[in-house]
């Protein structure tokens, strides 16, 4: 599979041409690549560099900085469980144990079927709904072990109908 499809590539190229400073689009380009492939490969970094007319190193130092740009393969869905103070104080650690048990993986790992990657995250801005997690761009709050089971099932079903 190509890093980007023709249509997205030409749209991005057009936007880059319209910007006085192309490199300001680096996060947008990396996110677009990630949306298609799930993560940003070395080829993705090189493509972004060509598009933005900067060096691969300049792309890499941005790509590796951000939490939610993945430079290694991830599952089809990435679970980010908040471990900051508000979620921590309302049972976040128990939710982590439950997720690890259900998915049979630990933080940083991907399930053998390639469905879920489990990662920690700092505060999701859902402190009033603690404990909270995100699955890709979808936010889930007020987590309980039962709610987690339901969410995993729904998220799984969404991919494989």
């Amino acid at each position: 599979m190509d890093v980007l499809d023709e249509k997205t590539l030409s749209e991005l190229a057009a936007r880059v041409r319209a910007y006085p400073y192309p490199r300001e689009m680096v996060v947008d380009v990396l996110r677009a690549i990630q949306e298609r492939r799930g993560w940003v490969s070395d080829e993705g970094v090189e493509l972004a560099a060509q598009l933005l007319r900067i060096s691969p190193l300049e792309v890499e130092e941005v790509a590796t900085f951000y939490d939610k740009i993945y430079r290694r393969p991830v599952g089809r869905k990435v679970i980010h469980l908040c471990d900051s103070v508000c979620c921590f104080s309302r049972g976040g650690e128990d939710i982590l144990k439950h997720l690890e048990k259900r998915l049979q993986i630990t933080l940083g790992q991907t399930t053998p079927d390639g469905m879920f990657t489990l990662l920690p995250t700092c505060c999701l801005g859902a402190c009033g709904q603690a404990p909270a997690m995100s699955v890709n761009l979808r936010l889930y709050g007020h987590l309980t072990p039962e709610a987690v089971d339901r969410i995993l099932e729904e998220e799984r079903r969404e991919v494989s109908p």
Binding site: S84, V85, C86, C122, C123, G125, C127, G128
Partner: peptide, 11 residues
């Protein structure tokens, strides 16, 4: 950016 734990008002 609003990423300081405990802060969610702007969102």
């Amino acid at each position: 950016d609003e990423m300081e734990p405990g802060t969610y008002k702007d969102g």
